[in-house]
Nucleic acid binder design. Sequence first.
DNA 1: GTCTATATGCCGATAGAC
DNA 2: GTCTATCGGCATATAGAC
Lengths: 187, 187
Amino acid sequence: MAWSKAHKSQTREAIVTAAAELFTRLGYERVGINDVMAAAGLTRGAFYAHFVSKSALYAEAISVAAVRAKNRVLQGASVAPSASDIAERYLSRERADGGNDCCPLAFLATDIYQRDEQVRHAYAHVFKGFVRNIARADSRDEQSDVALQAAVLMVGGLAVARALTDDPMSDRIMEVCKQAIANLPDH
Amino acid sequence: MAWSKAHKSQTREAIVTAAAELFTRLGYERVGINDVMAAAGLTRGAFYAHFVSKSALYAEAISVAAVRAKNRVLQGASVAPSASDIAERYLSRERADGGNDCCPLAFLATDIYQRDEQVRHAYAHVFKGFVRNIARADSRDEQSDVALQAAVLMVGGLAVARALTDDPMSDRIMEVCKQAIANLPDH
DNA sequence: GTCTATATGCCGATAGAC
DNA sequence: GTCTATCGGCATATAGAC
């Protein structure tokens, strides 16, 4: 039935969306299947009608979280933002403290190594898309070293700033990372 | 008794050393008290004679792991290494894959936000020491923006390189981060 | 497809013998 | 101080009613 199929895919989407927010904000191990399903308005038992394992959900959630984070960063930005424009929006206190649509690249970085190949592949795919967007923002080659350096300064800067979130140095880190990106060659 | 005191502090040190290696390599949640005690040649029950909680051990382990990682990075380096010399040793495939004495700054970064104040404070303290050492290596002011940028490029670069460890881009990331550090102002 | 109930196992932390 | 045994809780995953 068409109706039933639509309903199932809608439910599935609600689960992934809830997972994207929870995993990114709290990390893989601190979020149970119960938490995800409750956030989606369901109970534990229904989970395995949609996903074969928690890990499979994680891989999908990383991709969805990345799309949501990208939309949030670019929301209200100029039509053709530069890499520095992106950094200005990406490296912000609001993002470091972690609202609902946070960047999985920065918030899950050190967790990925511990996961299975599917999850690591999803993370790598998202990272490459991030680098590509930065390269395009400055009309660079997609393999540009500078875009890669800017990506590390954004992801690393946000990750460290979040870890030091209750310390005055946290804001300074984000500021000097923006400067470093602005000072990269060919500007 | 002196003998008993010496024995206790020796045992305690063995626990912290084992914890430093295990936590840094596998993360906080993937390591149980059982694992730490077994690695130290003891059993679960003895743990609480030395520490009030797993979290308290974690805070101490982060500091010890940092000292061990520092010794490992500087081992065989020149007497007065520059920041670029440090980066050259810090950003290496061997380190990204994670031997026994890995850098807790890079490997635990995204986990710290989830922990209690004691743990976050230990991480912040280690990070500040790292920045100070980089600043001194290039005879800079300890509050130098450049030292902070170099620190983020090292920690962020290694963290991302490890996450992408089975991808060809992983090595490139470490190389371009070394270049970015070498190209920072005032060289 | 979703529910409740449960199998199975690991965790941090504690109690008490030695 | 270290051991064995255990408490209480929560995890992933599964079974079966509806």
